[in-house]
Design a protein around this nucleic acid. Structure first.
Length: 559
RNA sequence: GCGCUUGUAGCUCAGUGGAUAGAGCAUCUGGUUGCGGUCCAGAGGGUCGCAGGUUCGAUUCCUGCCAAGCGCACCA
């Protein structure tokens, strides 16, 4: 709908330029937006403001001219342009009705569009016809996306930052799939580096111990057998395996309810399969990409915008983390991913430039997107709570979910943009669970379910109503929210702003509750109206359930 | 010192090159004996960190400054 309008305005401008009523100038971008206030209609465009200068007309004058042309287009029988792409206008046209009730030009030079009753009814029909497929699109075009997230070291439990990034990326993958991308959710297990030795020392509780906590005590009991006592690396590897299988995976599946398609092991999949060496060979084979200096092998990451070049092989010949990542990138390339998403803790942002450089150096031509998730700051009684892995006083995502419940934790973390350094007030954690807007949204769904159950009992559920009766302002607002859902999904698939989703859910629930207060659905004096409202209610339920489902949150029939 | 991120209502956070800057919580007022009150309606509360600049128009873009967080390894 939005795109159709943008196209139409563009073509109108084009026609005017051809006809000579407008000077010829570049039209870079036509923007049709959703106005902030309902009184300004369902859609709005500021093109006239943008191009007034180049057109040599006042914004109001230009807007009015465009409006006239658009009206002509809408009414013209021969115009196929607007009915080509979407059900709404096509259906509206089938009924020989226009798409817009009115198009207005307002003050500084806005053009505001108000949808017709027919078009609104068509939205409800479309939702009911498509059901849970409403909101799907093809913008992803089957592109293979590798979505790597969490990837926490297998040295301890997942913390709140892991949880935040995990939920965010998990939901992103669902949105991308609905938008037609082929997404693989991947967890990279760093089981080959220095930290495995540290884990080994910690489990053995020797002088080089780093980590502590109950799980370390338990591992100590299980692994400090006579034959293992001196073998730090072996202990570390065994411990890492246990941490991964018995702690992290459990948290992911049972507590967080995120699912991964692939767990890639640095040791088994990358190192032992020779990907690192293969990557080094590829880099060496290219002109001027690597060089030796002071006995180390360097990658010229500065060629791709990094501040300084980076070491691949140390003086002693050992591989750096970057070398290992080169192997990993190559492994992803071999699996023919066209796009890579990396969700990292913001404390790793310094690594972004060299990762990008490495990908380019290896010949990866697709897009690499980074989502840098800020760590979660814990606050209690107005004071920041300092946590340290060494001290073992970390609040884990497990503990949080146990405390507030899965849906609340998920919703809370999804609500904020990843780059905000959010404060999480521990003291308010439980209280927050009572006040969390997720219940507001779920309650709306339960309320809808309840009305529909009742309608069923009264035998009203099967008959369909006349959607032209839905003329109440609250009904109109509700339908408009339904109309915006597909646009929302596409927006998120483009710019990864997952946090728009819970915000949308709150707004939809809000409109529903408000509608409910003013518009009686059942047992009203007008049975036809009841039937029409039932249709609307069903559609709202579909979209609300879908929104919750994409977020991975339950849509309860009762609460 | 350099770099990245952030600075919007009492608190937690949305948002935008343009129409009176929004939501939730908190505070206050009113409604609702219900198709589930886990609700609805309304009020108060803002120099959009500060100062310049670009623009017809900046909270949004640019520069400088201030503050907070995080980085700045031949660690991972």
């Amino acid at each position: 709908m939005k795109m159709i309008l943008e196209q139409q305005i563009r073509s109108v401008l084009g026609e005017m330029q051809k006809a000579g009523t407008l000077p010829v100038f570049e039209v870079p971008e036509i923007r049709v937006e959703r106005p902030k206030e309902e009184q300004f209609g369902e859609y709005s465009s500021n093109v006239a403001l943008m191009f007034a200068k180049q057109a040599g007309k006042s914004p109001m004058e230009l807007a009015e001219t465009i409006r006239q042309q658009l009206l002509y287009l809408c009414h013209s029988e021969s115009s196929e342009a607007e009915s080509r792409n979407l059900e709404i206008p096509r259906q509206a046209r089938d009924d020989n009705e226009k798409l817009f009730e009115k198009i207005e030009v307002v003050k500084p030079g806005y053009i505001n569009f108000y949808l017709s009753q027919k078009a609104l009814g068509a939205v409800v029909r479309e939702v009911l016809a498509k059901k849970e497929r409403y909101g799907e699109s093809e913008i992803g075009n089957g592109i293979k996306v590798n979505n790597e997230f969490i990837s926490a070291n297998p040295t301890g439990p997942l913390h709140l930052g892991n949880g935040r990034g995990g939920f965010y990326a998990d939901v992103l993958s669902r949105v991308l799939r609905k938008a037609g991308f082929e997404v693989t959710n991947e967890y990279y297990i760093n089981d080959a580096g220095e930290q495995i030795l540290k884990l080994g020392h910690s489990v053995l509780k020797d002088s080089e111990a780093v980590y502590s906590g109950e799980y370390i005590d338990e591992l100590n009991k299980r692994l400090t057998t006579d034959d293992l006592k001196q073998k730090v690396k072996e202990v570390g590897e065994k411990a890492a395996g246990i941490v991964m299988e018995e702690m992290i995976k459990k948290t992911l599946q049972e507590k967080m309810q995120v699912s991964f398609d692939v767990f890639t092991s640095e040791k088994k999949d990358i190192e032992e399969n020779g990907y690192i060496n293969k990557a080094l060979e590829i880099l060496r084979a290219k002109e001027n990409l690597v060089y030796e200096n002071e006995g180390a092998l360097w990658l010229k990451t500065t060629l791709y915008g990094d501040d300084k070049d980076r070491v691949l092989l140390k003086q002693d010949g050992a591989k750096t983390y970057l070398a290992s990542d080169c192997g990993y990138i190559l492994y992803k390339m071999e699996r023919s991913f066209e796009r890579i998403i990396e969700v990292w803790g913001a404390d790793h942002h310094g690594y972004v430039a060299r990762f990008r450089a490495a990908a380019q150096a290896l010949g990866f031509t697709g897009k690499v997107d980074f989502i840098l998730v800020q760590l979660v700051k814990l606050v209690k009684d107005g004071e920041e709570v300092r946590m340290s892995k060494r001290a073992g006083n970390v609040i884990t995502i497990d503990k949080l979910i146990e405390k507030v419940g899965h849906d609340v934790a998920r919703f809370f973390f999804l609500l904020y943009a990843p780059e905000t350094q959010m404060n999480f007030d521990l003291g308010l954690a439980e209280e927050r669970s009572q006040k969390n807007p997720v219940f507001y949204v779920q309650y709306a769904h339960a309320r809808l379910s309840s009305i529909l159950r009742k309608a069923e009992e009264e035998g009203l559920a099967k008959t369909s109503g006349d959607l032209n009766l839905l003329v109440h302002p609250k009904e109109r607002e509700l339908i408009c929210e339904l109309l915006f859902f597909p646009e929302l999904m596409e927006t998120i698939a483009r710019d990864f702003t997952v946090h728009r989703l819970p915000q949308y859910a709150i707004r939809l629930a809000d409109k529903l509750h408000s509608f409910y207060a003013d518009c009686r659905v059942l047992n009203g004096e007008n049975k036809e109206l009841s039937l029409a409202r039932l249709e609307l209610i069903k559609a709202v339920k579909v979209v609300l359930a879908e929104t919750l489902d994409v977020m991975g949150i339950a849509a309860p029939e009762k609460m």
